[in-house]
Design a protein around this nucleic acid. Structure first.
Lengths: 126, 126
DNA sequence: TCTTTATATGTCTTGACACGTATATGCCAG
DNA sequence: CTGGCATATACGTGTCAAGACATATAAAGA
């Protein structure tokens, strides 16, 4: 019986340490299942199952070479992760430079009275 | 009874869609729990619990403003994710440029009898 | 054919985790 | 000090994925 294959986001895929290890291994060159198995010292069914997940999610593809399958990377899903991460890069440079020391003094979004201001916020800090 | 807090990798943290949404929300400016709750339309305990996870993992920090807590981003864990991702960037540019069109014909491993030939590969035991 | 090698898949168990509901804590105002 | 708002946490429940182990498929070589 085949289970319905849940569509997992790229983030869930790379949450698994063994899968990240496999991806890191494949970045140098394509590898067979046995090569991955030996280098990462994990049982062969484990490797095959993770590769199955990675293939279904588009992280890798395989070609047949006699009895063995050669797996190699595909870029799209990792690019998608990178795209999500991009929104924070601007924040990094700003943060490290100036904000680190005096965060407490900054006031958040003074305009846009969408929230009820009736809680006065006397700011009793000093 | 307090459970032992598992140290989760940054990848496991951002595997959760709601947590990614919270992080995306905080990239513009710091927010209170209630503001997050309203914008993301999720129950307050859910927001608090995810914030707890994010705080324990170093993704956010909070300051107290009267009854409310203001949460803001911290850069380190996301930078760590970005660092892992960096190893694949080189691969992207190479891949998109040349390999995209004729993947099937490629035989990038040189001097290897690939075509159905005796690929016996003695595979010397270590 | 039969055997060996390489890989895939099935089953079962276990444990992590997300969510809802209810409740606790803390801070402010009257 | 009492009531109300903002946030945190405890508890019970269901889902789902990962690992261990066994087995199935397939190609190669004897």
């Amino acid at each position: 019986m085949e289970y319905i294959k849940r569509v997992e986001s790229a983030f869930e895929i790379i949450a698994e340490p063994n899968r990240r290890a496999i991806l890191s291994l494949l970045v140098s060159s394509q590898q067979s299942v046995g090569e991955i198995e030996r280098q990462l010292r994990m049982p062969q069914p484990t490797v095959s199952k993770h590769l199955r997940v990675l293939r279904d999610a588009g992280f890798v593809e395989s070609t047949v070479d006699a009895q063995r399958r050669l797996y190699r990377l595909k870029p799209e899903p990792l690019r998608q992760v990178d795209a999500w991460l991009a929104q924070f890069r601007r924040f990094w440079s700003v943060h490290i430079d100036a904000l680190e020391r005096h965060l407490d003094r900054m006031h958040q979004t003074p305009a846009k009275g969408k929230t009820k201001k009736k809680t006065a916020r006397p700011k009793p800090r000093p």
